[in-house]
Amino acid sequence: MIAIIDYGAGNLRSVKNALDCLQVDSRITNKATDILKADRLILPGDGSFGFMMDSLRKNKLEAPIKKSIQNGKPFLGICLGLQALFEESEENSNVKGFCIFKGKVVRFRKGKVPQIGWNNIISKKKGIFRDGYVYFVNSYYVVPEDRSIVATTTDYYGNFVSSIKQDNITAMQFHPEKSGDFGIELLRRWLKC
């Protein structure tokens, strides 16, 4: 079973619909026991960095998520679910992230913000990712200290990191569940890795 982590915001239904379409068993949940029991975790995200981290902590979900990741359980972060893995965000500088990776989350300095629409990902790692158009809605992006985790980059008035991959952790700034057939293919390959 795949646990889709519910922290009280975001359109979780679309992630669930995409997994249903791929015929895999999933459950939207805010229970620690489900997270620990699940074969895989997905942390989707909409809203603000501060709201997400506060709700995850209030619902006592930080520890089970981190424990699962440390134990090698496949984890997929989407949008804010990617940003959560880092230390802090310019969006709410007084709130700590999971600090699994060193680095910050920063705001776009150029162009219209948020970036809304389809942009290209350029793959830097073999496996899950390919080059192609995916759907983004973001005002912030991650700047990892360790560049070896970068899986794709994207150009929005300059290149930014649009996904990362290290061992059992995969995370995407864009929404694979809203990126048409190409996005569904990314999810299918994640399910196999």
Partner: peptide, 8 residues
């Protein structure tokens, strides 16, 4: 629509 289509 949400069940069948995966675009915004």
């Amino acid at each position: 629509v949400a069940k069948q289509l995966f675009i915004p």
